[in-house]
Design a protein around this nucleic acid. Sequence first.
RNA 1: GGAGAGAUGGCCGAGUUGGUCUAAGGCGCACGCCUGGAAAGUGUGUAAUCGCCAAAAGCGGUUCAUGGGUUCGAAUCCCAUUCUCUCCGCCA
Length: 423
Amino acid sequence: MLVLQTIRENPEEIIRRLAIKNFDARELIFTIIALDDKRKETQKMLDDNLAQSNSLAREIGNLFKAGKTEEGNLLKEKTSELKELAKELSVTFEATKKELEEVLVKVPNLPHPSIPPGTTPEDNEIVQQEGDFPVLADDAVPHWDLAAKYNLIDFALGNKISGAGFPVYKGKVARLQRALINFFLDQAIQAGYEEIQPPYLVNAASGYGTGQLPDKDGQMYYAPVDDLYLIPTAEVPVTNLYRDVILKESDFPVKNVAYSSCFRREAGSYGKDVRGLNRLHQFDKVEVVQLAHPDKSYEVLEEMRLYVSGLLRMLELPFRVVKLCGGDMSFTSAMTYDMEVWSAAQKRWLEVSSISNFESFQSNRMKLRFKDDTGKTQLAHTLNGSALALPRIVAALLENNQTAAGIKMPAALVKYTGFEMID
RNA sequence: GGAGAGAUGGCCGAGUUGGUCUAAGGCGCACGCCUGGAAAGUGUGUAAUCGCCAAAAGCGGUUCAUGGGUUCGAAUCCCAUUCUCUCCGCCA
């Protein structure tokens, strides 16, 4: 949620910057300003009214104490009119505030000034590319075929017990996943992140805090009996750890890492992009979250990009880093780098991580603040990134490392997997 | 799931015969004094948020789990909800 003050200060600039995200905000912005004007006006009247009531009540109290019952009773009569008006005003006030809030949450985050315009992934800016594409034998196959050949992943069995998008991992690939999780967590801890094990079910307030609600509620699994949502990413519970928290400036940077399963309904997805491990309803991910001082958040974003690059390098996967254009960015993000790994057998880039700076968009919703040097409270910046999501990493590892003798594990993983080869 | 107790500021904790209560006291924290330096001691300060104001100062509103109610007036009384604790039941 954008800070109301900044909207009021330069509405035209807000509109211009949101146009980079292909979002026409003009109507929303002016509705917001009008509602806020109304809110202020109503509050002024209400406050004055309440101030009068309060002073009358005090007077009456003093009269009764002094034994001047009659005068007190006389004064009581004056209050009823005030009370009635106050009731009316507060109804208007609350309704206006609610209406304002509802419109305000519809406005996306502002893209950073450096974000290129654009509408599709083709308009994204490639900022880094590393590693050689592996040269595979002519009979190289995509991971779903390898999974069948070595009896690693059973998609049909997953269908039976849950449905499409819930694969069953077996044997060495199950162990590979466990190895990856530990590898990623250990790396993050070494890089100064504190490990968190968060709940997988969260309440609506948490979903709202990180921006999944109200606009993307169809993407989360929901348990109505208990009014809880399954997390689509550990970002939700971990960032919400700091909801309604006022940090000290010296607390920065706050660095958390969490492994969790992630649950996504992926309503509306189909086709070749969802084949095999490319898109799942349940998958595992290690997520890093940082809270940063507003002056430092873009340095932190770069630090996170370098950190994830390092992971991919250790896994010996060719990758590139893409800075998303306005049209490809999420609702909540101010700047996003996508990390993509080259899948040799599918001959395409697979997104394995998305690293974003949300600036104060999430923290404004969550009331995540810190006290600065001068003792003033201001909003912190939040950032997060996958480090990393497993399924597509597994897909790329299987595909890129296939040989006639079997699938070779990258050296960095062997001490975690306990084997060098899937055969 | 059943029975009972409870929810006050960063933390502990007083206040529940309704009246100047944002709320005693303590701890913590910040700044000073003391000290060669520290500890101890000592002094001062120490909630958030909204509105009025160009801003500071100042003034006003709101907040004692949440929502409603009674009343001129509610931390204090009533109702509902949520959560926590204790006991019982169930249980990895």
